[in-house]
């Protein structure tokens, strides 16, 4: 469904961020994209959604295809129209607009077809809490409510494909669980494919079917979520566990990451 073929991304024609990233997401799939800070995960998402252009970035090599069509030089709004919606990091919302208006803006691309009311019901079905908050100014919502609102707003566009950037950021663990459960339901009921960027690797890999690990602008590891969860290195770097399942002392830390950097 979505395919990135060896893309390279530069910001302002100097800062070389993605150095040949290839990944694919199939229809109805949830794929996790993991990696440390600054590995290029968010940039990958922005390359797909076209938002790179708003930050003076550009896809300089490779191609991005969505349902067989090349989309790397389309405008962000054109890409949204094709059915790819990015939920940006940090629960960005239109702070001075009400919850209701935020959701209606989410449906902006689909024109005024009178289906908005139906879609609102669908969103309220997933997030019953939003219904109570309908007329509140969204800037005053709590972190969890904001996350619900941004996912809900994305849903209003009826996306075929959702890009989620750190939906767990700043949320309490039980809220993360709730949000992830809802994401799973959305994926199952609406058939929306999801590419999920996460710091919380454990949560992400239990939701996703497959996963990619990025480091320094490259994909260094990929596989089924199950396999990745079992992978020794992943366990060590992301879960902070050694093979026995205990906290590891730093004395015997493997120099895996450093070796990787030399090769790069």
């Amino acid at each position: 469904m979505l395919e990135l073929k060896n893309i390279e991304v530069m910001y302002q024609n100097v800062i070389y961020v993605l150095k040949g990233v290839s990944l694919s997401v199939d229809e109805g799939e949830i794929v996790a994209l993991l990696g440390a800070n600054g590995a290029g995960k968010t940039t990958t998402l922005k390359a797909i959604s076209g938002l790179l252009k708003t930050e003076q970035g550009d896809v300089t090599r490779g191609r991005i295809e969505f349902m067989g069509k090349k989309i790397d030089h389309m405008s962000p709004e054109g890409i949204v129209k094709m059915g790819i919606v990015q939920v940006m990091e940090g629960q960005r919302l239109f702070k001075h607009l009400s919850v209701d208006e935020n959701l209606r803006l989410g449906a902006y691309v689909r024109g005024n077809r009178g289906e908005v009311a139906k879609d609102l019901d669908m969103v309220f079905n997933y997030f019953p809490k939003l219904k109570e908050l309908r007329n509140r100014t969204s800037g005053y919502l709590s972190g969890g409510e904001r996350q619900m609102l941004v996912v809900g707003r994305a849903l209003m566009a009826h996306p075929k494909f959702m890009l989620l950037d750190e939906p767990s950021l700043g949320l309490a663990p039980f809220l993360v669980k709730e949000i992830f459960e809802i994401l799973k339901r959305i994926n199952a009921d609406e058939g929306t494919s999801i590419l999920l960027v996460e710091q919380n690797a454990f949560a992400a890999l239990s939701l996703a079917q497959r996963g990619y690990v990025m480091e320094d602008g490259k994909i260094v590891l990929d596989g089924l979520a199950q396999e990745l969860r079992e992978n020794e290195d992943i366990k060590e770097f992301y879960f902070g566990l050694s093979s026995i399942g205990q906290r590891k002392s730093y004395k015997g830390v493997k120099h895996y990451r450093r070796r990787k950097r030399w090769l790069a």
Partner: peptide
């Protein structure tokens, strides 16, 4: 109106407006 809503959205956050599919 719908276009007014889009204008108000654009007023708040250009990038977010684009991510929502508004042609800023």
């Amino acid at each position: 109106s719908r276009i007014g809503l889009a204008m108000r959205g654009t007023a708040e956050d250009h990038q977010l407006a684009q991510a929502t599919g508004i042609n800023v």
